[in-house]
């Protein structure tokens, strides 16, 4: 079972996710963005960072990297694909996930732990969690505000998997750090094999890091990869 962790010029969270996947018992391999054959991969992670310097828009150039045609093909074939932070932005730019990420409401780079409420367990990222579970996960982004031209379609299809909340799980105005529409922190696609989120579960993978709440997400993803039948 091997997971491809894609590295673009400017990606900087690839070793963190490799370590977290290792803690969950999964093998992974770093893959340069010019790779065009990922037929061996049973799962793909697009990690955080600043792919191609975030030029034009975050993810705008990365979505045309050679590897992305293969990521699109694997996504269409049902392979689990996870985008974290910049990886989420790339998946949105590529149209693999709906919506877009724009500058934070207060125009500030946000780097702090936030609380997330699990809204749906029908996704590759939350299948091992419980609905209503509150997770403390670091957020580290400037363009983290989720917007979409048809937010109702995303809500009606139950594609919202995580929302920003208070430590008690309540969603209040001040618990939404970046102004995301409906406090959305993570979503899945219609086929539910692709997921993206702005916070970094791999940075909350061991108690020594301040929280291991991210492991339930990493383990969900690894479990979904184990279930892939080729």
């Amino acid at each position: 079972m091997t997971i491809a962790v894609v590295v673009f010029p400017g990606t900087n969270c690839e070793h963190d996710i490799v370590h977290a996947l290792d803690l969950a018992g999964a093998d992974s391999e770093l893959v340069w963005h010019t790779e065009t054959d990922l037929a061996w991969a049973l799962g793909v992670v697009l990690p955080g960072g600043f792919a191609h310097g975030d030029y034009v828009r975050t993810g705008a150039i990365a979505r045309f990297s050679p590897v992305m045609a293969e990521v699109e093909r694997l996504a269409a074939s049902g392979i689990p694909i996870l985008g974290i932070c910049n990886g989420f932005q790339i998946l949105c730019e590529a149209g693999i996930l709906p919506g877009a990420l724009v500058a934070n409401r207060d125009l500030k780079f946000i780097c702090k732990p936030v609380y997330l409420r699990v809204e749906s367990t029908d996704s590759i990222l939350t299948s091992a969690a419980t609905i209503g579970q509150v997770l403390k996960i670091p957020l580290n982004s400037y363009e983290g505000q989720f917007v979409a031209d048809d937010i109702d379609a995303i809500e009606d299809a139950d594609e919202v998997i995580l929302r920003y909340c208070d430590p008690d799980g309540e969603i209040r105005e001040h618990s939404n750090p970046n102004g995301s529409t409906n406090a959305i922190a993570g979503i899945t696609n219609a086929a539910r094999n692709v997921a993206g989120l702005m916070p970094h579960p791999e940075r909350a993978s061991e108690t020594i890091l301040g929280s291991n709440d991210g492991m339930v997400m990493i383990e969900s993803f690894v479990e979904s990869v184990r279930r892939v039948r080729v």
């Binding site: 034009v56 828009r57 705008a60 917007v147 031209d149």
Partner: peptide, 8 residues
């Protein structure tokens, strides 16, 4: 395709 994102 690239210079603008029609979503936003």
């Amino acid at each position: 395709r690239l210079l603008a994102n029609p979503v936003i």
